[in-house]
Design a protein around this nucleic acid. Structure first.
Lengths: 121, 121
DNA sequence: TCTTGACTTGGAGCGCACTCGAAGTCGTTG
DNA sequence: CAACGACTTCGAGTGCGCTCCAAGTCAAGA
């Protein structure tokens, strides 16, 4: 699978997987065609999707890199990976709670404006 | 209320309310003491809290500025403010749904590791 | 009167995560 | 064999939202 196809598949631009690779986020260096073009395997794709999940829940690149290093190191550090993911989950949940509570306050404001606009029109 | 007190009250550093004011996010220029120091009123505080709610739900500074401009313009544009807030709410809800779904996938992964760590130990 | 400390301003700097540009290479197609 | 298009690399640039710095001002206390 070419980089263009991989990008389309994962909803990224071609720049982003190149950047991820350069930044040490991939599990192994991606295969190359005879022309030196990247060839993405299913495993690469699955991993990029994992990166996407971590990133879009707000994990910093540097933590994704640490997690990738653990997975790369192979069997034996599952407890460490678990700690990393659980800490991340906790942060995401806290964040969700905060956003939700602020959203409720904004909703209240929306309610006030709705009443006002209704009466005015 | 001094800027230091206002910052403490809102959980910001003193830099941030200055920055907000410079960037046109306040409703009016903040009062000054004879020494030229900022004096924050209750209204200022309440507004900064509103900014915080909008910001921490992901509204870009530029949109906060547009909203502030509408409030500053006074009575008559409530419908426009409502549109802005409702559009924001929609984006936040979409975002929450996305994060939540990615979090579920990460949770699944955590479950796998938990089983593995359990069996290993 | 001198010092201290809390503030002021304008502008520069920073960290993050991409995103883009320039110049070059390769394999296919007409 | 020339042109094209999809890729390559490395480094620079971008946008966002602060965050910090330097130099200066002011009021109050010793």
């Amino acid at each position: 699978m070419s980089i263009a196809e991989a990008a389309a598949e994962t909803g990224l631009t071609t720049h982003t997987p190149r950047y991820y690779e350069r930044d040490g986020l991939m599990l192994a260096s991606v295969d190359r065609s005879t022309a030196g073009h990247r060839r993405y395997s299913d495993r690469d794709l699955t991993w990029i999707e994992m990166i996407t999940r971590l990133r879009s829940t707000g994990m910093p690149i540097r933590d994704v890199r640490r997690y990738a290093a653990l997975v790369r190191a192979g069997v034996g550090n599952e407890a460490e990976r678990l700690d990393l993911l659980k800490a991340h989950r906790q942060r995401v949940e806290d964040q969700l709670a905060e956003v939700t509570s602020h959203l409720r306050a904004i909703d209240h404001k929306i309610g006030l404006y709705e009443g006002q606009v209704e009466r005015t029109s």
